[in-house]
Design a protein around this nucleic acid. Structure first.
Lengths: 349, 349
DNA sequence: CTGAAAGCGCTTACAG
DNA sequence: CTGAAAGCGCTTACAG
């Protein structure tokens, strides 16, 4: 019995205890296949000899299942992990996976060099946000389940929210008090990167490329209904949903001369709206008296402050739970449209 | 050539192309082992036949390495993903792993039933925060690298920050303006769960159980130095670093009669401090005139607002990067103490 | 540069 | 309830 530094295997343990490998395997995986007494003996001895259960790599090869679900995020992991909406989604996914004895593998469609290699380990895939290229999908094992969140992939179930009606609803609410100078701050909506004012010659992404196009459509429907020609409403665009990237755009906008500065800002995300709120406070611009602001998402940070953000709440946690249930086969893999809720805060009463 | 629904394997591909399996494997893994021309042919045909590269499960079993690093979080995944400090840590870890072609598996030491089973797939482990039980470690493969973050495990490298000196520094700064009624709001520091005022008979966790004990020690050193007996400083405790859990505790504290309400709050986290700031604003208590507040962590949310939080900045992203480098063998597996930085905002000038 | 063969550590019908 | 055996899909010395 040479005590090699090598890790003990199921086979070693079987030999040691004088039983077959099947019995050891059953002790760990199918308690009903052997007497409780023998099972107890095996588990005790296993612990004593330093065997901590069947190796996951071998098991997954043998069974074809790893109990790992991969989430592929359109953005970098660094960005996604610090984004409240993506974090909520992940939390919802993790909640369900965990309860079902599965684990979460995080991949990024943006920077990741490991996707082609590592992805085949996962039992299923949840894809969040638009991928920079569709080539990625070609590398995913076609026979494994795949659910998309917040965008559509031909032939797969999608979980998304009612972006257009939600945007329409919040814009209609805001326009009930007629603004003098309404403006829209878009999130990554231009064909070419643009962090600032959108000029007339810039092409916008189509709605199959980004959900923010649907949000703009909702705003514009409300403008038309309120008798405002959408073409006359100035628009800004933000390339990334972070304070650092929003800040110069919002500063640019708030630093316009008083008679040009917008008095209503329809923002496509809470992050944009919160940035506007902070910069307005710093400049002594009173919210909502001189500037009304609306957001989108309903993240905690916008509600756990004073004044609270007027926004649209989308339940990203529930989006995550739903996607995870679909992947695990606990819910039918049918596209689901989640509804949102108008949240009236003090930034646009 | 029956086109089975089964996924094509390396072996199938070898047979199809009339070469050996070794050659196919080399085409994907060791380009230098075959002619570029043959390799190109193989890769092209592979794509045509729907073979997207060697199966990760089989590869990991064969090589013993999965290119997966597991992060085990002390809290639930739901909590951790929504906590700014944990998210920053994860972002730092992900950044390094990604650059090195590795991926991130998220596990929770708190709720996870899958840890025992799934953990053996990972090449290494990063453990964040104190585990509820040390039994967990017994199930981790002993021969794989393990790095702890923010707490110590016998025999393993640790990445942590200078909690005591940092807390001392910010308390000393705050006490430079003598407070009438200073108070401390602790984070999970009592032996028994306590969400509210800490009474004299309550035992506190020892410093090998929680980093917040070191933070309290730093505060108390500054109190003594300022001629204030720490025993006379009232303390509150918060069980979870979320707005929802902090809110009742802070409300309790702010709703004391004016002559008992603290005028200086040393908080052990930015989340606690931000909750205090929000509730103070809602009550019309002026910060910093009537109430000065300090935090700990330096999260973005505390700086991207007005007034900005006076706090201690710890670079959690760098903590994550460092831990990941150690796990991958890019940095020596030696314990590292990171330094923090005092950040003077407007909540305690 | 290529091929035949062993084996990574399991699970699972199947026969007893 | 237990045991012998096949095989999951690869990678890697090794011989040629």
């Amino acid at each position: 019995m040479p005590s090699s530094p090598r890790r003990i295997t199921l086979k070693d343990l079987a030999r040691e205890l004088g039983v077959s490998t099947a019995t050891i395997s059953n002790a760990f995986n199918r308690p009903d296949q052997l007497s409780p007494k023998l099972r107890e003996h095996i588990l005790t001895e296993a612990r004593r000899l330093g065997y901590s259960g069947p190796d996951a790599k071998a098991r997954s090869l043998r069974t074809g299942r790893s109990r790992i679900i991969a989430v592929i995020l359109a953005e970098t992991l660094t960005y996604s992990l610090n984004d409240a909406v993506a974090s909520e989604l992940l939390a919802g996914i993790a909640e369900v996976l965990d309860a079902q004895g599965h684990t979460l593998l995080l991949l990024s469609g943006r920077q990741n060099t490991a996707v082609p290699g590592s992805s085949s380990i996962a039992d299923g895939f949840i894809i969040y946000g638009l991928m920079p290229s569709l080539k990625l999908f070609a590398d995913l094992p076609a026979e494994r389940p795949l659910v998309a969140v917040d965008f559509s992939i031909e032939g797969h179930a999608v979980v998304h929210v009612d972006n257009e009606p939600a945007s329409y609803a919040i814009a209609r609410h805001a326009l009930r008090t007629p603004p003098k100078r309404p403006a829209v701050v878009n999130l990554r909506l231009t064909e070419q990167p643009c962090n600032g004012r959108i000029t007339a010659d810039q092409a916008l992404l189509s709605s199959d490329r980004t959900i923010t196009r649907a949000r703009l459509a909702g705003f514009q429907r409300a403008f038309v209904e309120a008798g405002i020609d959408p073409v006359t409403v100035p628009m800004w665009n933000v390339e990334e949903n972070t304070f650092a990237v929003c800040e110069p755009v919002i500063a640019d906008l708030l630093d316009l001369p008083d008679d040009q500065r917008p008095d209503l800002l329809l923002c496509m995300s809470d992050r944009i709206a919160l940035t506007a709120l902070t910069l307005a406070e710093q400049r002594g611009i009173r919210v909502p008296e001189e500037l009304r602001i609306t957001g989108f998402d309903g993240i905690a940070e916008g509600q756990y402050r004073a004044p609270r953000l007027t926004t649209v709440r989308q339940d990203s946690v529930e989006k995550g739970r739903l996607a995870a249930r679909m992947i695990l086969g606990l819910a039918p893999a049918e596209s689901q449209l989640l509804h949102t809720r108008l949240v009236l805060g003090e930034t646009c009463p």
